[in-house]
Nucleic acid binder design. Structure first.
Ligand SMILES: Nc1ncnc2c1ncn2[C@H]1C[C@H](O)[C@@H](COP(=O)(O)OP(=O)(O)OP(=O)(O)O)O1
Ligand SMILES: Nc1ncnc2c1ncn2[C@H]1C[C@H](O)[C@@H](COP(=O)(O)OP(=O)(O)OP(=O)(O)O)O1
Ligand SMILES: [Mg+2]
Ligand SMILES: [Mg+2]
Ligand SMILES: [Mg+2]
Ligand SMILES: [Mg+2]
Lengths: 618, 618
DNA sequence: GACCATAGA
DNA sequence: TACTTCTATGGTC
DNA sequence: TGCCAAAAC
DNA sequence: TACTGTTTTGGCA
């Protein structure tokens, strides 16, 4: 029977060291076989193996001399990297252990002693360490996990709770580096260098904390990096009753690797010494490196590269066949280089929503859903005071093939009509044009090319109905603004003017479609009768989700403002709260990925940047 | 180890005939033992056994003579009943097979071949016939069901779908008796007598239907009752693709019993002949009779009554120890008597909402939740244009003890403030007074003493701010109205005046409480990202439940009105639609019990009424 | 500018 | 009852 | 009028 | 991850 390695357990995760991979993979393949998902993964693997063959034959065409020359070139580059190596700073990477699962286990301690996972029958977001022993992990569907572990307890996601714990953690970390940066809800980087300098001047009292919550017993932490991080982790535990692991090293890539070493509930400091560093990374499996995923690993492994040191050994070939940026990335990796500055994004780069449903080909259903998704996205755009200039439609067929269609708008906008019309046009075009298109199982709407809609200059609103205003970026100026407004040259097939009449017609069309029978809509079932407890103020909430999320938003934003009766937008605390805000989203099975404001991109840096460089043709 | 029969499988259900009760009960008790629920059931059983002991000793105190006299009295009563026996009509009881489960299996045919149930981990609403083989049935918690049947597939409730199928079924039934009455979503009584008379005059064409949906093959049904019901069931299947069972007999009680005989997907007609009837019921286990539940059965069994005929045999004792109404009920049962008229309620008698949550004692949480429940209830009151005069608070402790506290208002109202204040007063009183009160796990708010708020006499609004108006009941008149208004004598501790100022203060108080930390709220988790398909128009819906329910309401009400843009209340189709309307509610695991407008009460009838007469002291 | 593939939480 | 959601990036055409 | 227990779907 | 939600009735105090 055919298989695909793409479905095998990914054991590159703490707590999954001594699995019977053989048996687990057999069960997974068994459970998956003949599914459309399985077939799609097979196609994907085949496509990659084909590409690999091309590469391998390309390699054969190189002469030994060419390879030696390439190796020398690589060595020169490595030398250069060595020169810019900065060992002076000390970074810390904090990562919560089995984050969602830990929160749920704290809420219900009975779960501590059984294998459990967080998510749904359809998809798990994470699992506890007991479940990992069975091969159950994040991104595995629940029903397959049950094959691996029949007694698995699956508890539904409650992002509200996770957000609350996350913000407690971040608050603590910010005390050690106010410029810290977080990825996702459960991890953050902090540059402890400055704190460590100041730390020796701190009084003992300032390094002293209760041993247990509400206990009079106390514990004082020393002034070393190791002890500082003990302190951070202790404080996190006091605040959340869940454990974190941490890694310390001279750059962020190494710190991240270190936080995995003694996970869970451990920490590891890597000495800031070149030989120690090179020794540390030498034998790591490439898959542990952030940026090397399943596919990249497959490609590298086909070159006999298993460990980081193998990258070094194959540097000649890599120089010859990989794209420069990929080569650059790999050289940094095998040389132990990484970013030494925490860069925050000025502004989020895209906002979107997508949803999976039972496959359908019905145009009216799809169009109606598309409209809803656009609405949801624009609502967020508006509530975040952001404008966009690009709209992307995403669809996935029942065969798990993904398509995107996008269009740049003639100017920045947050108009529901313009955006909706555009994305519906894209969708209709796709439905009309591709008559072979299989039924769809997912649709998404995303807007990008974002710009802050600053309300500091309301006068500008006089120039354009489109509320095209200015931006918060400092290097933008009035010239840019005028450009924005002038930017109305119609290189578009259809115009994007928004006038009241059109708006009315558009809504009316929507209504007619609604009534036309056979349309689509998103919602969550079991809505009516259950109660949710606000994880901040413990209030039990009855009613619809939007209200609940708003309530929690308010709670998280610190003291609630007692001046108005209705818990409504009241976004009268714009920038201060805005910057600290954790972006709130939730769905049955995943996405607090909703970017946090303190989140920073592990983006390509000019110097020593942790970079995600890799190529689809690697 | 101790047990309680109250937790044993209840095998009085179609499809549960040859179970290994021994084994199943062992598993259930094992899974339940030590739980608070278990302990509560034990207490309940003990209490009943105590009462039974009292009864038994009472029986011992009767002389043989007394018993003989009682038997004679009973015989006279039976004779009387015989005289009023009406064998002239022919009733049909239709009951869908494994209703929710069948709908789900139709939607996903893969489920046909596995044991499955509808509900959640916490509670199942029903199971398919395969699952019943394992002892899995309605009102069993999912996690216990999994002990009995580890491969059980549990699919969540989707009341919207069930409502749609239900209305299709009811529509068909109404063609045979426009005065039909339904209990719950999945069953109805029809009096076929008139239809059968007219039926012989129908053309063959009018008794002819396609054999399959969209097929040209046809099938013609005859004119007998048996064939008429075949036709009904065939049409139900054509319309819904799910099967129904049916029973025909000369009264409703017998018809209901008959529909169970050849379930699933069968029918049974009981000859309208006294001897046949008596023979039919003679050996039925008492538990099959509607109105005899677990407790009543336990009581009767302690008198050696197992079958309906045993009731007859023990008629002397029953006459002596049971309450007259219970005795009356039992005599009707064992004599094969039942109601021969379908009575519809003029107006629903109560409206309420309740919810279960993780036990808490926190007053602020509880008060806040109570407010939300009151709001939800009043919303429904208002949207149904109903007034109420009584408010009941229901609470359940973590030990599963249930309390109710209620209060009659000084006049009819649908004022949120009055109702909320009253129920909160009740709650606070309970929380303050009973300091021993364990944490709560459920709270409910219910309003009763209802009266239609007819808008036909808007002039009356001038007399009172409370919108106390008239009623739809014919025997009420202007005198009553004036009484209502005058009815403002304060026999109440606190007044119920509603003025704007008070209202404002009340809401402000609420807000302060909200902010005061540690409160409660109801909601459904996974709301944001999934899609729901409207079971009527197939539109996929994105967003919150209230909107979705409104949408489906509109769809069910037939053609949607295309005159307004927003799908809002637009309750401009008051009485016509109102009468046909199926009351829509949903929750994670149960309650389409939300009364349907065509629903009728199987209430005590003066003559031959199906009656639920029984006594808690039976 | 538009699309795809990859990646990570 | 059943293979996510959200965001970011680089390469290609 | 108010409370409880039983019952049905 | 875990014992429902909605409604009606009868009896008693
Ligand atoms: N594929 C995914 N889809 C959706 N959510 C995810 C996914 N992977 C992780 N998450 C969520 C759930 C995790 O608890 C949280 C943090 O991720 P991550 O740190 O990688 O794992 P973890 O914290 O659960 O375990 P650990 O860090 O101990 O290995 O992000
Ligand atoms: N205890 C309960 N709690 C909540 N919902 C219930 C309960 N019992 C039944 N229901 C719902 C689900 C059922 O499908 C529907 C009709 O009930 P009912 O006719 O008694 O059983 P059923 O239709 O599922 O099986 P069948 O009639 O074949 O025995 O009402
Ligand atoms: Mg983690
Ligand atoms: Mg993480
Ligand atoms: Mg049924
Ligand atoms: Mg039924």
């Amino acid at each position: 029977m055919s298989r695909t390695t793409f479905l095998n357990v990914d054991d590159t995760k703490a707590g999954m060291e001594d699995l019977d991979k053989e048996k687990i993979n057999k069960l997974i393949q068994e459970a998956s076989k003949n599914s459309k998902f399985f077939k799609q993964q097979q196609r994907r693997e085949e496509e990659n193996r084909r590409r690999i063959e091309v590469k391998l034959s390309k390699i054969k065409s190189f002469s030994t001399f060419q390879i030696e020359q390439a190796e020398k070139s690589a060595d020169r580059y490595l030398n250069q990297l060595d020169k810019t190596r900065d060992l002076s700073r000390i970074f810390c990477h904090i990562d919560m252990d089995a984050f969602y699962a830990s929160v749920e286990m704290r809420e219900n301690p009975a779960l501590q002693h059984v294998p459990m996972a967080v998510g749904g029958e359809g998809m798990l977001s994470t699992s506890n360490y007991l479940a990992r022993q069975f091969g159950v992990r994040a991104a595995m569907p629940g029903f397959i996990a049950r094959h691996l572990c029949p007694n698995l307890v699956i508890v539904p996601c409650d992002f509200n709770k996770y957000r609350v714990d996350s913000s407690k953690v971040m608050k603590i970390i910010s005390e050690y580096d106010e410029n810290y940066g977080s990825c996702g809800l459960d991890e953050a980087f902090a540059d402890l260098t400055n704190h460590l300098q100041k730390r020796s001047t701190l009084s003992e009292e300032q390094r002293t904390f209760p041993k247990e919550e509400n206990s009079t017993e106390i514990i004082t932490f020393g002034i070393t990096a190791e002890e500082t991080v003990q302190e951070i982790r202790h404080r996190i535990y006091l605040a959340t009753r869940i454990t974190a692991s941490a890694g310390m090293a001279c750059n962020m890539r190494l710190a991240k690797l270190c936080s995995d070493i003694n996970k869970p509930n451990g920490q590891y400091q890597l000495e800031s010494n070149v030989n120690v560093i090179l020794n540390f990374i030498r034998n790591l499996p490439i898959r542990k490196i952030k940026g090397i995923g399943k596919v990249t690993a497959l490609h590298l492994e086909s070159l006999q590269i298993q460990t980081v040191n193998d990258i070094y050994l194959k540097r000649g070939i890599l120089k010859l066949i990989e794209y420069p940026s990929t080569f650059d990335f790999l050289m940094r990796v095998c040389n132990g280089c990484g970013s030494t500055t925490i860069e925050h994004d000025d502004l989020q780069k895209s906002i979107g929503h997508e949803t999976t449903f039972n496959g359908t080909s019905d145009s009216l259903q799809l169009i109606s859903l598309c409209r809803d998704l656009a609405k949801k996205t624009v609502d967020e755009l508006i509530s975040d005071r952001i404008l966009c200039k690009r709209v992307t439609l995403k669809i996935k067929t029942v065969n798990f093939e993904i398509l995107t269609r996008s269009k740049t708008l003639s100017s920045y906008t947050d108009s529901l009509n313009i955006i909706t019309d555009k994305v519906i046009t894209l969708l209709k075009h796709e439905l009309d044009q591709d008559l072979e298109l299989p039924a769809l199982r997912l649709m998404g709407v995303r807007v990008s090319d974002l710009k802050m809609k600053s309300s500091d200059l309301p006068i500008l609103q006089f120039f354009s109905k489109k509320s095209t205003t200015t931006t918060t970026t400092i290097n933008e100026n009035t010239h840019d603004i005028i450009e924005d407004i002038d930017d109305d040259d119609d290189d578009d097939d259809e115009g994007e003017e928004e006038n009241l009449n059109e708006e009315f017609l558009s809504i009316e069309n929507q209504y007619n479609e609604d009534c036309n029978s056979k349309l689509i809509h998103i919602d969550d079932e079991n809505s009516n009768t259950s109660t949710t407890t606000c994880p901040v103020c413990q209030k039990m909430l009855l009613g619809d989700n939007d209200k609940i999320n708003k309530h929690i938003d308010l709670c998280l934003n610190g003291e609630m403002i007692r001046t108005t009766i209705k818990e409504q937008d009241q976004q009268t605390s714009p920038q201060t709260n805005y910057n600290k805000r954790i972006n709130l989203t939730q769905s049955k099975v995943t996405p607090p990925a909703k970017r946090q404001k303190r989140k920073f991109n592990t983006t390509p840096q000019q110097t020593n940047g942790i970079d995600n460089y890799f190529s689809k043709h690697i």
